[in-house]
């Protein structure tokens, strides 16, 4: 059956992931803010080349989806579908539209959970109309002594060089702190 095939494959991937221990000494980064959507992997490429590794994210396209639980009130097919619908349609999972206090809590929780060493707030211009959040997040994280950088960009590739310089400096900032 299809579902069994799926489950087996998922288990295999899970076991593989458990076996792989993180060997790199790269700083662990939380990527917050707007999503990385195919085929625009610019931020990940630049992070990789700047020597940072993404350890967690709270984007709407990946882990951001899982923070709100699916609450099933009725254990039937229609009950499950209703619960899934409510989770995916009724409640917004967009981090740009999320209430700021919740967003900050989410960032700090994730930082603590995954031993994050720095937070990158990825700010895609088409997703986020006004960049108001990042100033407040910057303040809060500064008080908690968590390195923070906001990267404002769009889908073009022409700012890759400048982004790299900034992320390399960010890495140096984290490296110095570890010492």
């Amino acid at each position: 059956m299809e579902i069994e095939k799926w489950n087996n494959a998922a288990e295999k991937v899970y076991n593989e992931a458990c076996e792989k221990k993180q060997v790199s000494s790269r700083p662990k980064i939380l990527l917050a803010g707007t999503p990385v959507i195919f085929p625009n992997f610019k931020i990940l490429d630049v992070m990789e080349s700047a020597g940072l590794s993404m350890a967690a994210d709270i984007q709407c396209t990946s882990f951001g989806r899982f923070y709100n639980p699916v609450s099933i009130d009725e254990d039937t097919e229609s009950g499950i579908i209703r619960a899934l619908t409510l989770k995916n349609i009724a409640g917004s999972i967009c981090p740009c539209l999320l209430n700021l206090e919740k967003l900050i809590d989410l960032i700090i929780d994730t930082v603590n959970q995954h031993n994050i060493q720095g937070v990158i707030y990825y700010n895609l211009r088409l997703c986020q109309v006004f960049d108001i959040q990042s100033a407040i997040i910057r303040q809060v994280l500064k008080e908690k002594n968590i390195p923070f950088i906001s990267i404002k960009t769009d889908l073009g590739k022409e700012d890759t060089g400048q982004m790299k310089t900034r992320l390399e400096a960010f890495r140096e900032m984290i490296d110095l702190r570890k010492k």
């Binding site: 500064k142 923070f148 404002k152 700012d159 400048q162 900034r166 900032m173």
Partner: peptide, 11 residues
């Protein structure tokens, strides 16, 4: 002497 924070023109 540590860099705490920096801003740079982005694009």
């Amino acid at each position: 002497g540590e860099v705490v924070d920096f801003l740079m023109n982005d694009k």
